[in-house]
Design a protein around this nucleic acid. Structure first.
Lengths: 242, 242
DNA sequence: GTCGGTGACTTGTAAGTACAAGTCATTGAC
DNA sequence: GTCAATGACTTGTACTTACAAGTCACCGAC
């Protein structure tokens, strides 16, 4: 699956950083040492370092060895459409387990977020997301009935929900994310394997189509030691570090 | 200012895309053509393309020419609002109370984030932010000594830190925000008036100048029942590769 | 001891070469 | 006419060499 040399180098360094083998504040081996260790030339080594730098794991500059800045890989915000893509970017193995899918009447808060009548039906999913086999995030998604119906008959443990939706022509154009922190409730605690009351990062999201009509409402809860959310905003222009 | 070859190539291509000279959906010249045009080898040309790809301007894949996906880079700086602006938007009265300002040696993780030596001095502030008189957020900010010194003599309960910094010519060009959740420690609990261990939304931020040199490091903790962070992203259909 | 310079080490940039792998239009067989 | 194979073109990956530029520790002059 991951055959490229720079991919393996990046994955291995990511593993060392995540495992604490190389701690925050410490410096990486020099490029020359990495070349020797992986029997590679500087090109793939530098490609790997460029990827880690883009992920915010390492920093540094000319003449200095690269420093470890953070141990938890950041999730680039632009790829909010796909948890799977984010995982592959950071070299982790994504997994998912659908806990529940239901057609029901939503509670009033959700109905309001989707701009629906109180008696409208919605499709709701409860899905656990895994990284390297460990629970990382719990999704509670709600779709309007028209949009969500096809999901009831799809094989959701295998494919992505977004693939099903885009396949049938649903366009997801804009999203509004709200972040806060909550204490894990009983369901969260059991599925994410944390204690009841332990802090979770919550992302609530309303996704709309290009006309601004709400399509999806989601309540995602992240284990903060496994996944974080990162937003980068830039006013200037970046320079390449390859 | 911009001396590197790949920087020149990237800037020129960015200009053509932004000006519409190469429209969205059209394809860029091949790498070979760009090499000839700029009298460069493939290395800097590919570095330039990698930067544009990272900015979301272009996409494509092996065997195909790069396609223009978008005319403007993602995430304008303005989409992130300051605490004060957010407060005014929601009609609440913002307040602040400086708890502490100090010149000290940072702990290693912070030093690494600011790319400083372990024995460098920094200016650290601990500031409580209020909404309608109630504790809402606790900021722990760290500045490099050169940048932060003027803060020691400024009246920080009245004016904004940002104002002091821009006044003295510090340019803040880009920021990287990472969100997760933490349990309140003793200090958090006392100042934010919550129980120890209750969940808080944490935003860690590194702000850099236009050269990419880190200026500010911040650890902000929000009471989730009083303040949340919202991000809107309106990116079109970007189903392309990374 | 302090200061400043030297030199080894490290990363940044860029040239060139080679081959692998994917795309696409043309071509030729059926 | 349709379909599959071919081959030109293009990007992906990787190795090599070379030099520029920044960092840092050591060492000698003072």
């Amino acid at each position: 699956m991951k055959e490229s040399l720079h991919g393996t180098v990046a994955a291995e360094l990511r593993r060392r950083i995540r495992s604490g083998e190389i701690g925050v504040g410490e410096s990486l081996p020099s490029e020359a040492e990495l070349c020797e260790e992986f029997s590679a030339s500087r090109t793939p080594v530098r490609q790997a370092l460029a990827v880690l730098r883009e992920e915010g794991l390492i920093g540094g500059g000319q003449g200095r060895r690269s420093l470890v800045l953070d141990a938890v890989p950041a999730q680039p915000f632009e790829s909010f459409l796909s948890f799977t893509m984010r995982a592959e970017l950071t070299g982790q193995v994504p997994g998912q387990r659908l806990q529940e899918i239901a057609l029901r009447r939503p509670d009033p808060a959700v109905a309001a977020a989707l701009e629906l009548d109180a008696d409208a039906m919605v499709v709701q999913l409860l899905r656990l997301r895994l990284l390297d086999g460990r629970p990382a995030m719990l999704e509670r998604m709600t779709y309007t009935e028209a949009v969500g119906r096809p999901l009831l008959s799809a094989d959701l443990d295998a494919g992505s929900i977004y693939a099903v939706l885009t396949e049938q022509g649903t366009d997801l154009a804009a999203a509004r994310h709200t972040f806060d922190a909550v204490a894990a409730d009983a369901t969260d605690a059991e599925l994410l394997e944390v204690g009841v009351g332990s802090p979770l990062l919550r992302e609530r999201r309303v996704t709309t189509d290009s006309q601004g009509v709400p399509i999806e409402w989601s309540d995602d809860r992240y284990r903060p030691d496994v996944a974080t959310v990162t937003v980068t905003n830039t006013r200037g222009t970046r320079t390449a570090r390859l």
